[in-house]
Design a binder for these strands. Sequence first.
DNA 1: GATGAATGAGTCTTCATTCAT
DNA 2: GATGAATGAAGACTCATTCAT
Lengths: 166, 166, 166, 166
Amino acid sequence: MGAATAAISRAAGVAEGTLFTYFKTKDELVNALYREIKLELADAMMSDFPRRASVRERFQHVWDRYVHWGITNPVQHKALQQIMVWDGLTEESRRAGITPFLEIEKVAQAAVAEHVFLDRPLDFIAAAMNALAEMTIEFMRRNPAEADTYRASGFEMLWAAISRKR
Amino acid sequence: MGAATAAISRAAGVAEGTLFTYFKTKDELVNALYREIKLELADAMMSDFPRRASVRERFQHVWDRYVHWGITNPVQHKALQQIMVWDGLTEESRRAGITPFLEIEKVAQAAVAEHVFLDRPLDFIAAAMNALAEMTIEFMRRNPAEADTYRASGFEMLWAAISRKR
Amino acid sequence: MGAATAAISRAAGVAEGTLFTYFKTKDELVNALYREIKLELADAMMSDFPRRASVRERFQHVWDRYVHWGITNPVQHKALQQIMVWDGLTEESRRAGITPFLEIEKVAQAAVAEHVFLDRPLDFIAAAMNALAEMTIEFMRRNPAEADTYRASGFEMLWAAISRKR
Amino acid sequence: MGAATAAISRAAGVAEGTLFTYFKTKDELVNALYREIKLELADAMMSDFPRRASVRERFQHVWDRYVHWGITNPVQHKALQQIMVWDGLTEESRRAGITPFLEIEKVAQAAVAEHVFLDRPLDFIAAAMNALAEMTIEFMRRNPAEADTYRASGFEMLWAAISRKR
DNA sequence: GATGAATGAGTCTTCATTCAT
DNA sequence: GATGAATGAAGACTCATTCAT
């Protein structure tokens, strides 16, 4: 689906048969690709993470890195979106894809404990961030001139959505 | 992709060839399907719309109807998600798919004018609602026992995200 | 195995995809082909069968028709040989392929009852005929000038092998 | 065909590439395998050969060893059957495969000279033995409880087929 | 206008063969 | 000489599309 194995191997710079020495089936390949991209994304988000900054600054860091990665890696970003609505993604891969983001959940956990965030399930908070970031990336891509404005507005929305008012 | 034309025609209760008397290609068919489902969804959201209620009540109405439709129409919802990341969706269809939701944007416009909402692009607000609703539907589907809690929490997030504090 | 689906469809005078509207897999196709050829062979053997002639004459008739069919239908004959040692042939097909030859077994049965044949399992007798006929066909094909001699000698061997001496 | 070179090298306990330092192509390898198995079979048949026994006893010896080898070496036996109907087997290999069996033909030759056998081409006699033995092996394999009966009956058939009556 | 059998380009996958180590 | 990762041609199979009925 989406990409033919011929296209994938071409993109990877290997022969078509080579893919199948590493992955038994295309499904397996796509699942592995999903985890790989998720890891890359997590790396991008967590590098230079300001562990001692305020909750808001830490979230802002993660947000900025996320949307920046989305803009500068359009191919991977597009692939990720398509894989996420694909039927062949295993529950196992889905779980594995979340793992690298647990650091972020920990920050959220602390924020809930400190009454900075409303008391909501952590994965729900993480998913909200994800959803708003994806939608913000889309607007940034379509309107590059206003990209910075969208990035800032998007984060304001997120912060308002998850933090305790006042 | 995703569904073969053979499956689509079977689901539609017509012969395989018949599809192609109405649509020149499958791409055209999928684009039409997209608009069709979007219309259904808009209908579901706007029926019984409380035109005279408060901004918050009107948004709550729309939100509740949206997530309810997503839960009760899983097939269409899934199709929609897949079509939205599909390469063949035309810009024209995308625009047409938004049209039925202009009513909602009008409400948002009024809310901005009345300083109920922050001053943001209306389509950005609409997209935020969409993104949060999709993510909420996902949680409701995976955790039916807590569906109502998620629906309410999701709306609180949305409202906090777009409304002016205090 | 042996023949590619491309070759089979070409031989059948249809497009490659057409095969798969009639058979779900190649295995299924080959199994069907096996039964088909077996039926043809049985037809060839049993047409003009001299139901009232002596046991020997009836066996001679069957023998002559068999080796003649093998010589004049080399493609089908070769296919049959290859399918018979193929792993994908189902037990069901094997049984179905034998059915048209039950008439011959009936003759053998009568011959056993009349003490014309030695008292051996009927399928063993039939298999002996089959084995000797196949080997005879091979010699006839390799040495067309002596074909008639081989056909006659082959039958003498068979008759000696299965009939009661003197 | 039937077995991939990967499987063959695994069975042989060598690396995939190693096969091709000994054989230029798979065809060549299979041809060599054919001769190898034929040699093994000939060895099995001719060991303890009772050179001074009667013609019948010598044939019986060969027959017993043949069917015994077929039963106890199912893999090689199956391979042999498949190679024999395979298109790539060279005429040269076919001839070479027969060579180890010339000893048997010599016995048959003597038997013809002594008027024990009917006057038929020696290779025709050998082929008949082969054909009946193969078919007998099949019955023995499918019905192990009656294996000895089939082996004896099979030989009786063979002897009747090739020896001069009375 | 509706049908569905037939088509063949395109897809995933296998496997004999090569070659750098 | 041995290895096994890499290759790509060839194989089985799918599916959007056509067209005679």
